[in-house]
Amino acid sequence: MRIDFTKMHGLGNDFVVLDARNPALAQALPAMDAAFAAALADRHTGIGCDQLILLEPSRAGDFRMRIFNADGSEVEACGNATRAVGLLHGAPARIETLGGLLCATPTNAGISVEMGQPRFDWDAIPLAYAMDTHTMPLAWEDLTNPIAVNVGNPHAIFFVADPYAVDMARLGPLIETDPVFPERVNVNVAAITARDAITLRVWERGAGLTRACGTGACATAVGAMKRGLVERAVTVSLPGGELAIEWREDGEIVMTGPATESFRGSFDPVDYGIPAGSPD
């Protein structure tokens, strides 16, 4: 049996979505592991994506979303993917993730997602040892004193004059894999352009430099708000487009932006060396 997939993106951050809420597909789909996810995500020999998204039934929400980065690692949250599956679902939904329960609602401006409350404690990021996460006493060349935020996954945010002048291809993986971040980290470089506007680039843990990162936009906006650099509602401009981020008075982060379906197709697991419906 061939496996159906939907190719989607949020501001160019692209996904292969497998909907295993369908019992027939769930039975035919091989068990998902890092090797299989990475094979599907490969842009040369697979379908190609930044993240592979697996939808499953859930007792905690309307459905469960599992997220695999391009390197096959399973991660807790992805804001752009949440908007994408919200569009695919077509109605308000409570989505179970490893990072917690997220609520996605279609709006005239795209999909609005309640992303939960940020965490700033060093052991919630997590960091390897205790330190001030508001102004971390660390530097990687010219990138200094980041703020660390967990918004379902870990982020380090550096405020700079020009994010596009930073050599992210070199510094991104260096910071991502630094031992101070035992679960690795997403690396954000941002410039404040107005009291309600931020320009951002993100090196995503396990995916590299992407055109947009929803959790990165949330973490960066909240980090800037925490430092008093911007108001409680901002527009975050990424290479792929813009996201609206609000940090409500009740502590909830709300992200609003577009999502797009690119195309649909199917694949045979045998082409990846995995018999359909086999154990991993």
Rank of each mutant, 00 (worst) to 15 (best):
M1A: 12
D4S: 14
T6D: 01
M8H: 05
M8T: 02
H9P: 00
H9K: 07
L11D: 04
L11C: 05
F15H: 03
V16H: 02
V17K: 05
V17I: 15
L18M: 13
R21W: 07
P23T: 09
A24M: 10
A24G: 08
A24C: 07
Q27V: 11
A28T: 08
L29D: 01
M32W: 07
M32H: 07
D33Y: 06
F36Q: 03
A37K: 04
A38H: 13
L40A: 08
L40N: 05
L40R: 09
H44F: 09
H44M: 12
I47N: 00
D50I: 01
D50L: 03
D50G: 03
Q51K: 04
L52H: 06
L52M: 15
I53Q: 00
E56F: 05
P57D: 00
S58T: 10
S58A: 12
R59M: 09
F63N: 05
M65N: 04
I67M: 12
F68T: 00
D71E: 13
G72D: 13
S73Y: 11
E76R: 11
N80S: 13
R83S: 05
A84T: 05
V85G: 02
V85E: 01
G90S: 12
A91P: 04
P92F: 11
A93F: 04
E96P: 10
L98N: 09
G99P: 04
G100M: 06
L101A: 06
G110I: 05
V113R: 02
G116I: 12
Q117I: 15
R119V: 05
D121P: 07
W122Q: 01
W122Y: 11
D123E: 13
P126I: 06
A128V: 12
Y129L: 11
Y129C: 09
M131N: 07
M131I: 11
L138I: 15
W140P: 05
L143E: 03
N145P: 05
A148M: 12
A156Q: 06
I157R: 02
I157E: 01
F158K: 01
A161P: 06
A161Q: 14
A161L: 08
A165G: 04
D167E: 07
G172K: 02
G172S: 09
L174H: 10
L174K: 12
I175D: 04
R184E: 07
V187H: 00
A191M: 04
I192S: 02
I192A: 03
A194M: 08
R195G: 04
R201H: 02
E204P: 02
L209W: 00
C213N: 02
T215R: 09
C218D: 03
A219L: 07
T220I: 03
A221K: 02
A221C: 13
G223F: 00
K226P: 01
V234H: 03
T235H: 02
L238C: 01
L238I: 00
P239V: 03
P239A: 03
P239S: 00
A244E: 11
I245P: 01
R248I: 10
R248S: 12
E249C: 12
A259T: 09
A259P: 06
E261A: 13
E261Y: 08
S262W: 07
D268C: 09
D268Q: 10
D268H: 12
V270Y: 11
V270A: 15
D271R: 09
D271G: 06
Y272F: 15
G273W: 11
I274R: 15
P275F: 14
A276E: 09
D280Q: 10
D280H: 13
